[in-house]
């Protein structure tokens, strides 16, 4: 499980999990009517849940970056591990940006079908 290629995609795996979780929660919430009372911004329980989920995953993905940086130890030849380290950092940063960008809509867009 410590294969460098798996570490490389770890952050995006978190992003994928968040994606599924947030989308499923939103659909389930609408189906069970958690979005009612959508009058004041914070009164909608569904929006609150979604925001919490997104914030948690954002923190988790930042944590991934920190963890990867800390455990960075040259496993192979210097050249190879520098390469892998750099690609890992790029991909993780891309995942962090994607998380912020993809889920920004939960803060204000219409939650459920009219």
């Amino acid at each position: 499980m410590r294969h460098p290629l798996l570490l490389l995609i770890l952050a995006f795996v978190v992003w994928s999990g968040t994606f599924l979780l947030v989308y499923a929660t939103q659909a389930t919430g609408c189906s069970l009517g958690w979005h009612n009372n959508d009058i004041a911004f914070w009164r909608s329980p569904l929006r609150f849940i979604l925001i919490v989920l997104v914030v948690i995953s954002f923190v988790a993905i930042l944590g991934t970056l920190a963890w990867l940086r800390r455990r960075h130890k040259p496993a192979a030849a210097l050249e190879t591990s520098t390469f892998l380290g750099q690609v890992k950092t790029y991909v993780t940063i891309a995942a962090i940006f994607s998380t912020a960008f993809c889920f920004a809509g939960v803060f204000w867009l219409t939650l459920c079908p009219l």
Binding site: F101, A104, G105, L109
Partner: peptide
């Protein structure tokens, strides 16, 4: 573009 489209869609 994306955020403009969100606003427009809303």
């Amino acid at each position: 573009l994306t955020f403009y489209a969100f606003a427009q869609g809303e």
